[in-house]
Design a protein around this nucleic acid. Structure first.
Lengths: 227, 227
DNA sequence: CGAAGTCTTGAATATTATCAATAGGGGTGG
DNA sequence: CCACCCCTATTGATAATATTCAAGACTTCG
């Protein structure tokens, strides 16, 4: 990528100034002057559907904040099996690991936008502002808790319960009981630890029961407050 | 608990000075003088088998380093189902969460010993020594990676694969292919997302196949390097 | 030695996976 | 605009895997 021109820097600063995420993100701990310092080192990048911003096994040189869109987090087994360990949405962060190699891939489910910082810069900021590392720690703890929720889902719940839990959580993310699924069935199946066909049958069951409605595959409506 | 006497403080300092864990733990970032300051605020406590040092839903006021023994980390569902989300061993830490309530319980599998610090003190140390929070972050990231391993195990592996993976990981923890299981079958089953009976049958299969040997239930020997 | 708990085994059932075929939807080119 | 194709999703029939309920064996400990 070419060296940033003055124009680019101005555009980036503008992005930061207008950022909807700022009050909730890592940046919230920085002053205006500090933000001005961050802007030139930050890359506000579009990501095409299907593109990876993290690859399993690759060195982790960058840290990301999801601005818009969504990603799946994937672990691949040697024999071709695949586990989706999570989905990430605007405001979530990626690549916080201090380990040298990424343990998962992050693939865009749709055209998305991210903010990218180098780890070197992040470390520098963290040392200067303890609140930055505190924020990273809080994010990682939140991820750990979500992972534990996922473990409970996979370890104890039936296919039907898994799907219902998953859809309820999505409704929280999207802030409504009617939403569009950004991911295909195969990704949901790999997240829920089910085969594609089992997932499809389970969706059919919930539809028959009136718990959910679907249209054109990807659009979902959850019936009000299933006890 | 009574106020620490001078004698107690001396005993604690002694513990810290001789601590086998120190080079690997949070304390490794502290100087000798700092350790001397830590010792009086630290409690070096025995924990009885079955006792909980963390309870799901309770406020998280303390941070723990496991000195000896082992614990299971448990999530309980409303209907009585139970998921073991992990096991912890000497050198592992617990209670790093900055959230107000613990999302899991930690129960001793055997008589154990822990170091305990108040969160207030930990925060104070973290602010003074950025390396402390860095260490906490690294621990949490390591936990997150383990949780992802667990998710893959539950989402993609068969009963036999789950058990084999679990035993291989334990052999790494214990540093040998022959060891004593500190936990009962029910805990292993709840960790692997299997019923007690299924686990028992799966153990029998691996025995028949010569992959493992068992004696008196809890003692295990893994055959050399299953490809 | 006996009792309580833990672990194993057995037989029948339920759930999920597998293999195979069909249907729907979105985009492209005629 | 419609026909066709490709990709995604659904449905059907059968097989594999894990669960359930029930009974029996082994350990530990008082």
């Amino acid at each position: 990528m070419a060296k940033a021109s003055l124009c680019d820097i101005a555009a980036r600063y503008d992005h930061c100034a207008r950022c909807q995420l700022k009050p909730f993100s890592i940046c919230s701990v920085l002053s205006d002057e500090e933000m001005a310092a961050v802007a030139p080192t930050m890359a506000h990048l579009p990501v095409k559907e299907g593109a990876s911003i993290l690859r399993e096994g690759d060195p982790t040189s960058h840290f990301f904040v999801i601005v818009s869109g969504s990603f799946r987090l994937v672990r691949n087994l040697e024999d071709g099996r695949r586990q989706v360990v999570g989905f990430v949405f605007p405001g979530d962060v990626l690549g916080t690991t201090s380990l040298d190699a990424s343990s998962l891939s992050a693939e865009a489910l749709e055209p998305s936008v991210i903010c990218r910082f180098s780890h070197a810069f992040l470390d520098q900021m963290s040392d200067k502002h303890p609140a930055v590392r505190e924020k990273l720690l809080a994010h990682t703890q939140s991820d750990l808790r979500k992972a534990h929720d996922h473990i409970v889902l996979l370890g104890q719940q039936s296919a039907e319960e898994r799907l219902a839990s998953f859809l309820e959580r999505l409704s929280t993310v999207f802030g409504g009981r009617e939403f569009h699924l950004p991911m295909p069935r195969q990704d949901i199946a790999d997240y829920l630890g089910l085969r594609l066909e089992t997932l499809s049958r389970t969706i059919a069951k919930l539809k028959d029961r009136g718990t959910i409605e679907t249209a054109r595959g990807r659009s979902i409506r959850l019936s009000e407050e299933a006890a």
